[in-house]
Structures are given as structure tokens and as C-alpha cells.
Nucleic acid binder design. Structure first.
Length: 588
RNA sequence: GCCCUCGUAGCUCAGUGGAUAGAGCAUUUGCUUGCGGAGCAAAGGGCCGUGCGUUCGAAUCGCACCGAGGGCGCCA
């Protein structure tokens, strides 16, 4: 947040280096001062000394680094906005003038409000494809990760200034759907979905799998059904449309509960025909090889096309030998469609890590075919959600935790706790709090670990609202709110800070000041983790401050400043939680 | 066989090549006078998988090995 000061210091350092003919460095690699109570920035002088050593001077690097640091400290004096400078262990440390810096941070937060941390739009459109549920299957906890991760990344990118298009690609056709339809038509025809649609649809799917296991005659029926679909047999299409809608209605309900939104819906059924046309075109252009005359599928030998000796991208099957479409067929068409529908700077696919090779193959094939934007399509892989004992959640095996049941359970549990902690709330308030807390507790663990880490779901920790979890952060927000609620007058105006800041105050301001930078970083790396980490830091700093520093009963000047600080903290926590699509309740 | 991840405290995980590797949970122990104790504070607990290298400096980068998981021609 203090780029201007940093820039001024860098200019002065360069000036000093030049006048002492010390070789110059491109990047000063500023870090926060790692000592408790030391609020400021620090840069190591080792790289400068190492450069000299490499140029042939016979020197001891750490010793020379300390010399340079001392020289710099002397040259800089105490720059504008800083309270002190020191050369220590080869580092140059610059301490912020706390009173001035903290006032600036608080003023800026209160001025910008809900926009604190937001970057101005810069005209780059990016599509984020996420969730991608399959119809005719259950919606379980595993699906929550893509949904919530995608929602949060979309919010972060938008906040960081991108023009975001949120896309959902529905898996509404494929072998799994045909198998489901076959089972329904043969054994359940006429049945309507019960109240818990998703469980019933999932059950019918695993039932289909069980019936088909090792029975070639039944498999033949499924293939027959698939070719009827391929001919668009009206009876099959009608059945598909009706049953598909059952799933879609249910998805809509879940997205509404989770506060997840989409701008554009695609489905793989609508990509079948365009996909087949793309494949035809690739065959004509010699990119794909048609092995159907000899009973094989249509393939793209990617490694061969690239002239690679070692196998890397291998072979992509783009059309089945019977001419029906695969996911790859449809993904080729979809990638093309996205860039023709929109003027995209990039196209991001938030899909689990098991499909990494698939996406590399699809994008590489499009690159070979000469689409200039192919390198701007990007797969963002995330690891799966497993059950304890590393048990994979699979619809076909029925080893799943249904999302709806989990949501109900977490809200019931949250409600019990609200009843206990805050019985004076109205029933309606309690319900609202339970919803905010229950959902937050479910979402947080999906966002707070790195994308490459497997999430292990277990009921106990999902319903544990203590410690490093959303309710802790929500509680900090509630406490801030409870102070400000008691304030009858408007918030005091900004004024110079006369009192010596408490370490707890400085820590809190530091956390607030880091928010805009962390938004940038999260957007650049597609990592919600940076936001959850900072948000937790904020909440912890606030709770510590709350304990250490009285606000309402403090001396008037201090009170005025602290009130503003509390308001700034509340605002930043709310902004951060919003990026995580976690609600910031007023009471709880 | 080839490719991709991961390996940090008892457990779950953070950790931009930089100073003394940090949280939460669990364990033990303190905090009633202050705005909400869903909180705060303290203690114990670490060959950062192993080895070699690069570097002034490695949990972080490179190579090899060990261990776990995932992927690899008509599933999605």
C-alpha cells in the first residue's frame, strides 16, 4: 500500500550505489521486518555484495553486505514517512512512522468502503468455467469444491479488475446419462422424483451400474439406446429432456443456497454436433486420423504431430469408432465456441486434477490446428475431496456425502450453538445466523488449502466451528459491529494520531494494509488460500486488539482513532469474506 | 514403463531464495473489575522424507532416491 514511499527509497538507494560505483540490482526484494513490533520494510544487501564478489573483488560477502547497509542507512537519514532506519546483519531496515501510516490506512479503507482492495477495470475479459455438474447423478461434497472454489476465484478476479464471465458446463449427455435412461426406461418408467431428487437420481445411476456389470446382453441394450439418441429418436429425446430437467432444477436450488451465480450455461449435449464437425474438419486437414475403416476411432497423434520423441501428450481419441461423440469431441467445440462468443483474454477451466492430461491434449490439439488463442485456454486443477481413509467419493459406488444433507446438518448444528450462545435473538435472526455460520464452516476448508492438496471430508471437523474456521472470522466481524452499534454519533473525522500505538493496533493495521496486495496475488495465482490466510490474520489481530485496547472507554482522542480503526477492520473483514462468498453477520 | 502432484509439530495445514520455520486442533495451565469468553495469553511438541548440488544464504531452486496419491486409445 505504500508503493510511493518505497519507490522514493529505491531512487535514493540507486543514487547512492551509483555514486559509490557499486553494481546495481534490478529488484530490491522488499520484505516486512520480521521482528515483533517492527513495522516497516526491509531489504537484504547480500545480493549487492555478491555481485561485487562475482565481479572479482576479494571480499567477505556478509561483512560487505553490512558495510553497504550501514552506508545506505547513513545516506538515507530518516526519510519522509519513516521513523527510523537501521543496518542490521546485512539488512537495511526502514521503520514506518506508525502514526502517519496507520492513519492513512484507516482513512483509505473508510473512504473506499466496500471497494477497498478493488482494482479499477482494465478491460480484459476472462471466462471462468466451474462446477460443471453431471445431470442424472448425485450432487455431493466433492462437487462443492469446484463450485465454491470457482465462485471465489471469479469474485477475486472481478475484484482484481478483470471482466469475468462465469460459465457452467453441464454434463447432460454421455454414457452415464444413457445408462441412467436405460435403467429408468426398463425398470422405473413413469416414476417421478421424490423430494430428495438428487439422492434418488444418484441411486438409480448406481443401480444401473450394478445391473450392467458383466452382462453383455444388457450392455448391448445400452449401446442400442445410445445410437437411438444419436439419431435423435423422439421418444428418447423426450425422456432425456424430462429427466435432465429434474437435475437442472435441483442444481438451481443448490446454487441458490450456496450463493453461486453463472452468466453463461453450456451443455455438452449442445456441443455434440459442433464437435463432430470439428473432427471432420481435423480429418480433412490431416490433423486427425480416421481409423474407422479398420474398426478404430478417430485419433490425434499429438506427440507425432509435435515431433516429440518421448511420449508426453500421447494420443487423443476425438470420436468413437461408432461415430458417437466423446467428452474430447465436445471440449474441442466448446473451447472454440467460448472464443467466438466472447472476446476473451483467457479462458480458465476449474476442473479436478485427474483431467489434467485431457485438457493438455485438447489445448495442444487446438494449438496444432492453428487457433491463436489456444495457449490462452488454461486448466486450473484442484485436488479431490476424499472421505477418511482416503476413500474416493464415487457416485457409482455410493460412497458419497450428499451436499443437501450436509448443509442441513451444519445449519442445525449452528442453530444449536446460537441458541446456547445468544438466546435473546429472534427466531428469524437465529435462522439467518445459523445459515451464515453453517455454510461458512462448510465453504472455508475448501478455500483455505492449496489447490493441490486433497481435502479429507469428515463430519466431525466439518461441524467444528472453533479455531481456524469461518465462524472465528465471522465472530471478529460481529465483535467489531457490536462496538460500532453502541455508537450514537457518527464516526469521528480523521485526525492526527497523538498517542503511541499499541502493538496490537499496529498488527491489525498491518493486516488491513496487506489486503489489496493479497487480492492481486490471489488473482495472479488463482489461489483463494491467500485470501483465507489474510482473513484469518485479520480476525486474529482484531481479537487480540479487542482484548488489549479498550475503545469506547478510552480517552477521547484515542477513542476517536480506535473507533475508526474498528470500522476499518470491520469493513476489510467484510470485503474479504465477500470474496470467499462467506456471509459477514451483524450478530451471532 | 512414462507423466503430474504431494511429503513441514501427535493430527490438519500455512510458509515471495533472506534474519529466530509458524497457525489451528489435541494436551497442560492461566485470564471475573473493559465494548459479546464462538475470545485472549502461556507451556510442551521440528534431522522441514533422504542424499548430493547451485547460492553469500535453501523448507523454498536443480538432480537422484524413498514414500503416498493421481493420470496414461474409443469413462467423464
Amino acid at each position: 500500500m505504500f508503493e510511493r514511499e518505497q519507490q522514493a527509497i529505491e531512487d535514493q538507494i540507486r543514487e547512492y550505489l551509483a555514486s559509490h560505483s557499486i553494481p546495481e540490482l534490478d529488484d530490491f526484494h522488499w520484505n516486512p521486518i520480521p521482528f515483533a513490533g517492527g513495522w516497516g520494510i526491509s531489504t537484504p544487501c547480500f545480493p549487492l555484495a555478491a555481485l561485487e564478489a562475482r565481479a572479482g573483488k576479494k571480499i567477505n560477502v556478509p561483512q560487505r553486505a553490512q558495510e553497504i547497509a550501514s552506508g545506505l542507512a547513513e545516506h538515507l537519514g530518516i526519510p519522509e514517512g519513516f521513523s527510523g532506519v537501521e543496518a542490521l546483519n546485512g539488512y537495511l531496515n526502514l521503520f514506518y512512522s506508525s502514526a502517519e501510516f496507520s492513519r492513512r490506512v484507516v482513512d483509505r479503507v473508510l473512504e473506499e468502503g466496500a471497494d477497498f482492495g478493488r482494482q479499477a477495470p482494465f478491460g480484459k475479459q476472462v471466462m471462468v468455467e466451474f462446477s460443471n455438474p453431471n445431470t442424472h447423478k448425485a450432487f455431493h461434497v466433492g462437487h462443492l469444491r469446484s463450485a465454491i472454489l470457482g465462485e471465489s476465484i471469479a469474485r477475486i478476479l472481478a475484484f482484481a479488475g478483470y471482466d469475468v464471465v462465469r460459465a457452467n458446463y453441464i454434463g447432460d449427455m454421455g454414457l452415464h446419462v444413457i445408462k441412467w435412461l436405460w435403467n429408468y426406461q426398463r425398470y422405473h418408467l413413469g416414476e417421478k422424483p421424490p423430494a430428495d431428487t438428487t439422492k434418488w437420481m444418484g441411486d438409480l445411476y448406481s443401480e444401473a451400474i450394478k445391473r450392467l456389470e458383466g452382462d453383455p446382453e444388457l450392455e448391448a441394450e445400452v449401446r442400442e439406446l445410445y445410437s437411438r439418441w444419436d439419431r435423435r429418436d423422439p421418444e428418447v429425446v423426450a425422456l432425456w429432456e424430462e429427466t435432465r430437467q429434474w437435475s437442472l432444477d435441483h442444481f438451481e436450488k443448490i446454487y441458490q443456497i450456496l450463493d453461486i451465480h453463472f452468466d453463461r450455461w453450456y451443455s455438452n449435449s449442445e456441443m455434440e454436433q459442433p464437435g463432430k464437425m470439428v473432427v471432420e474438419q481435423f480429418i480433412e486437414e490431416g490433423i486427425a486420423e480416421d481409423e474407422r475403416p479398420t474398426g478404430g476411432p478417430v485419433i490425434v497423434r499429438i506427440d507425432d504431430k509435435l515431433g516429440l520423441e518421448k511420449e508426453k501428450y500421447r494420443v487423443l481419441v476425438v470420436l468413437r469408432s461408432d461415430g458417437t461423440a466423446l467428452y474430447a469431441t465436445e471440449d474441442l467445440a466448446l473451447a472454440i465456441k467460448k472464443f467466438s462468443d466472447y472476446n476473451l483474454y483467457s479462458s480458465i477451466y476449474i476442473v479436478d486434477v485427474r483431467q489434467s492430461l485431457h485438457f493438455e491434449q485438447v489445448f495442444k490439439t487446438l494449438e496444432i490446428a492453428g487457433y491463436p488463442w489456444a495457449t490462452r485456454s488454461q486448466h486450473l486443477p484442484y485436488e479431490v475431496v476424499n472421505l477418511p481413509g482416503n476413500v474416493v467419493m464415487a457416485s457409482r459406488d455410493g460412497t458419497i456425502v450428499l451436499l443437501e444433507g450436509l448443509i442441513d446438518e451444519s445449519q442445525e448444528r449452528a442453530l444449536e450453538i446460537v441458541e446456547e450462545k445468544n438466546p435473546s435473538l429472534s427466531d428469524e435472526q437465529k435462522e439467518d445466523v445459523a445459515r451464515a455460520v453453517g455454510l461458512g464452516a462448510l465453504k472455508y476448508p475448501m478455500l483455505a488449502r492449496d489447490n493441490t492438496k486433497i481435502v479429507t471430508f469428515d463430519w466431525e471437523s466439518a461441524l467444528d466451528f472453533n479455531g481456524q474456521a469461518a465462524p472465528y472470522i465471522q465472530y471478529a466481524h460481529v465483535r467489531a459491529n457490536s462496538i460500532l452499534r453502541r455508537l450514537e454519533d457518527p464516526l469521528p473525522d480523521s485526525a492526527p494520531i497523538e498517542h503511541e500505538l499499541d502493538p496490537a493496533e499496529i498488527q491489525l493495521i498491518d493486516a488491513i494494509s496487506r489486503f489489496p496486495g493479497e487480492v492481486q496475488r490471489a488473482a495472479a495465482e488463482y489461489k483463494t488460500l491467500h485470501i483465507t490466510n489474510l482473513t484469518f490474520d485479520l480476525a486474529r489481530s482484531f481479537n487480540d486488539f479487542y482484548k488489549q485496547c479498550p475503545v469506547l472507554k478510552a480517552d477521547p482522542d484515542i477513542r476517536a482513532y480506535r473507533l475508526r480503526l474498528v470500522a476499518a477492520a470491520r469493513q476489510t473483514i467484510a470485503n474479504a469474506l465477500n470474496l470467499l462468498s462467506i456471509l459477514a453477520p451483524e450478530v451471532m
